[in-house]
Design a protein around this nucleic acid. Structure first.
Lengths: 202, 202
DNA sequence: GTCTATAGCTGGATAGAC
DNA sequence: GTCTATCCAGCTATAGAC
C-alpha cells in the first residue's frame, strides 16, 4: 500500500502520466484507470469526461513550463545577471519535468485553441514585456548589443528547451545513455548563458 | 480537375497532409480518403494498412528534415563559412516544410522505435561526425574557442528548428500574424549565425 | 463511492459486386 | 481498379446494483 491518497489525486496522477506519454488522442481511459488502480467508471464519476480530465492535466503542465519564465525575469538586477539566472533556473526546472515541453508543444500544435484562454490568464506576461523594455534600454545605453528583444527571448528559450524536445533523437544519433544525457543538460546551464552573453557583448 | 496524378500519389499526398496535421493517433483513414477524393477501401487496396501508410509518410519527412544537415556540412571550406551556410540553408529548407519538425519530434517521442532503422540508414551521419572532428581541430589550432562539438551541433539545430516547433505559442504570446512570423524567421537566417560565431570567437 | 455490465458509436479492415 | 456494404474490435460514457 505505497500510496494512500484520496481518489481524486490518484486519478490526476495517473492521468498526468498517461496523457503526457501518449497525448490526448493516444491515451486510453482504461490505461488511466489501471494506472490509478481503480475502475474505469470512477474516472467519469470524478471528472465527467476524458476532455475535462485532459484539460486539467494540460493546464497544469502549461503553467509549470510557461509561468517560471516570467517570475525569474522580475527584479532590478543588471540584465546580464537576470539572463544567467533565468537560464540556470529554467533548465533546472525543466529537468524536473523533462517530458512536459514536448507534450505541450505537441498538443498546442494539434489543437491551437486549447491555449488561447491559458495565454490570457498567464500572470507572467507582464514580466516578459518588462524584460523586453529593459533589453531595448540596455541596447540604447550601450550596455549590450542592440538586438530584437523577441529574438533574444526566443534564443534563450530555444537553447533551454530544445534538447528536451529532441531527446530521443539526440540520444539515438550520439549513442548517449540517460546518464550522459543528464550530463549534457547539466553542462548547458552555464554554456547557454555563455552563448547568449557572447552574442550580446556590445 | 486540377490534379490528375495516379491514385498512389494522390493518396500519399493526402496522407501527408492528414498525418502531419493530426499525428498517427489523431488521423482518420476516412479523412485521408476524403482529402484524396477517393474511397476508403482504396487506401487499403494500395497500402494495406494505416501503419504502412504512416511509415511511408514518416520516413519521407524524417529524410527531409535530417538528411540536409549532413550534406551541407561536407566540403573543405573554413568552419565559420560552413556554419553560416548550414544555418542559412537549413532555415530556408525548413521554411518550405514548416510543420515537419513538430510532426517528427512528436512521433519520435511517442514511439521511439520508429526511428531506430531510420537512424542506421541515414547516409548523412558520416558528414556530421566529420564536422565534429573539424570542430575539435579548429579549437586546438585556436581558430575558434574550444567547445564540445555535440553542444555546438545542438545549439545550431536548436536555434534553427525551435521557432517552427513553438510557432503557435510564439504567435500567441507576441500577437504575430503569419507575415510577421515569416519576417522573424527570415531575420534569423543571419542572426543565428551571429549568435553562434560570437560564441565561437576565440 | 465503487463496482459490473452494457449501451452506443467510431474507425480500421475486408468481402464481394461491377 | 473502384465502389458499397458490412464486419468487428475498441473506445467513451452511462445505467444500475451494492
Amino acid at each position: 500500500m505505497a500510496q494512500e491518497k484520496n481518489t481524486e489525486e490518484q486519478i490526476i496522477e495517473a492521468a498526468r502520466k498517461i496523457f503526457v506519454k501518449r497525448g490526448l488522442d493516444g491515451a486510453r481511459m482504461q490505461d488511466i484507470a489501471d494506472e490509478a488502480g481503480i475502475n474505469k467508471a470512477m474516472l467519469h464519476y470524478y471528472y465527467r469526461s476524458k476532455d475535462k480530465l485532459f484539460e486539467i492535466v494540460f493546464n497544469e503542465a502549461f503553467s509549470k513550463v510557461v509561468t517560471p519564465l516570467g517570475h525569474i525575469l522580475e527584479g532590478t538586477r543588471p540584465i546580464e545577471e537576470k539572463i544567467k539566472e533565468v537560464i540556470d533556473h529554467y533548465i533546472t526546472g525543466i529537468s524536473q519535468v523533462p517530458y512536459l515541453p514536448i507534450f505541450i508543444l505537441t498538443e498546442v500544435n494539434q489543437r491551437p485553441e486549447i491555449m488561447i484562454k491559458r495565454l490570457n490568464s498567464q500572470p507572467s506576461f507582464g514580466s516578459i514585456m518588462n524584460f523586453m523594455k529593459e533589453v531595448i534600454e540596455a541596447g540604447k545605453n550601450g550596455k549590450i548589443r542592440e538586438v530584437s528583444p523577441i529574438q533574444l527571448f526566443l534564443n534563450i528559450v530555444s537553447l533551454c528547451i530544445f534538447p528536451f524536445v529532441a531527446r530521443p533523437l539526440i540520444q539515438g544519433i550520439f549513442q548517449q545513455d540517460n546518464v550522459q544525457f543528464d550530463m549534457l543538460v547539466e553542462e548547458r546551464k552555464k554554456m547557454v548563458a555563455d552563448v547568449i552573453l557572447a552574442w550580446l557583448k556590445p
